[in-house]
């Protein structure tokens, strides 16, 4: 009998630079097989924006007052299909070369497609990045929707996984997930999604997206670990919150909301007005975002003035391994022990 525990992630939006290293770390680890070309179990999109899949926040799903809500089935074109470049024709054919470009015409959507748009008016324009993965919800709408019981939540860590031996590709899960974090593989005929790097976590290794992040953006750990950063940020300081809590699925990925420089008046002088409109942040994170922003600003000011701030020290994460709670094993060491295990079995 294992205790019911929940692995969670806190993503600090103030530190994300949109470099997509997490996206590629995930892609090369998990979605580099046939039928997964257009899948991105980790995305980083720009806010404000339509995101991935395009317009996902208007696609429905989740629950309202506990009742399942209809959702739209996202299409591959809305996520953005994979494309290749005509490298051979453009670069290796001497003088008679083609112009370098995508094969099969210009694509019209992809992850972070609306990067350069943002919101607000110059000089008070704004934008920030939102990395997203499956939220491994406490009340997974995908799991509730599946008529085959093919989706389950692991007791030992709360990771939500699809049993592809039971999945028949009906895709009710895709519709029901309000975050549209599930993809359909047309080769295998099954639905697939972020598995929170479960095989890595089982070996004490952090998720690929967290470990590869150069910005130390992504905290990892058990939600109930009172000594870990997750518990502190979510429950003690209440500065980490779920994206779109109104969908009622109770996500276990939390965000530190973004601060921004002050707005400027017409003369270019800073004024006491939020650059990122509070109603926009409210629409993303719910009413808890106001007090969180206030606390972040106050603690930041305290630290700037030379004072002590445990919250700021936690967010700064000077010691890299402090980000990962109990998952501090180097994957290199696990690879070694796996090799030894295989050799022992053979020997």
């Amino acid at each position: 009998m294992t205790d019911k525990r929940q692995v969670a992630m806190v993503i600090d939006l103030n530190k994300c630079i949109g470099c997509q290293t997490c996206t590629i770390a995930c892609k090369t680890q998990w979605t580099n097989r046939e039928g997964m070309e257009g899948m991105w179990w980790n995305t980083v999109s720009t806010s404000p924006g339509e995101g991935t899949p395009k317009g996902w926040e208007k696609m429905g799903g989740g629950f309202r007052k506990g009742k399942a809500q209809p959702g739209k089935l996202p299409k591959q074109g809305e996520f953005g299909t994979a494309w290749n470049f005509n490298v051979e024709e453009a670069l290796f054919q001497g003088d008679k070369h083609d112009t370098l470009g995508p094969i099969g015409g210009d694509p019209n959507w992809g992850t972070n497609w609306d990067e350069d748009i943002g919101g607000g008016e110059y000089p008070n324009s704004f934008q920030f990045y939102i990395p997203r993965i499956c939220n491994h919800c406490t009340k997974p709408a995908c799991m509730e929707a599946c008529p085959r019981g093919a989706i389950f939540k692991r007791e030992e860590d709360g990771i939500v996984v699809i049993n592809e031996d039971h999945c028949r590709g009906f895709r009710f899960c895709q519709e029901a997930c309000p975050y549209k974090e599930i993809y359909y593989n047309t080769v295998t005929g099954t639905s697939q999604k972020c598995i929170m790097c479960a095989p890595r976590l089982e070996e004490g290794v952090p998720t690929a997206c967290s470990r590869q992040c150069p910005g130390r953006v992504r905290f990892l750990g058990f939600l109930d670990d009172e000594d870990g950063p997750i518990h502190k940020l979510v429950y003690k300081y209440k500065v980490a919150m779920a994206l779109h809590p109104e969908y009622e699925t109770e996500p276990n990925v939390f965000y530190i909301p973004p601060l921004a420089p002050p707005s400027f008046d017409e003369e270019g002088n800073p004024i006491d007005e939020d650059r990122i409109p509070m109603d926009y942040l409210d629409s993303l994170f719910g009413p808890a975002v106001g007090p969180a922003i206030d606390l972040l600003k106050a603690e930041k000011a305290k630290k700037k003035a030379g004072g002590e701030s445990d919250l700021m020290d936690t967010l700064i994460a000077r010691n890299w391994l402090d980000l990962f709670g109990p998952f501090t094993t180097n994957p290199k060491d696990v690879a070694k022990t796996l090799e030894e295990r295989v050799q022992n079995r053979q020997g």
Partner: peptide, 12 residues
């Protein structure tokens, strides 16, 4: 008789 609430509400 549809086995999940989601299927019932989405096809209602």
């Amino acid at each position: 008789l549809q086995p999940t609430e989601y299927i019932q509400v989405s096809w209602e």
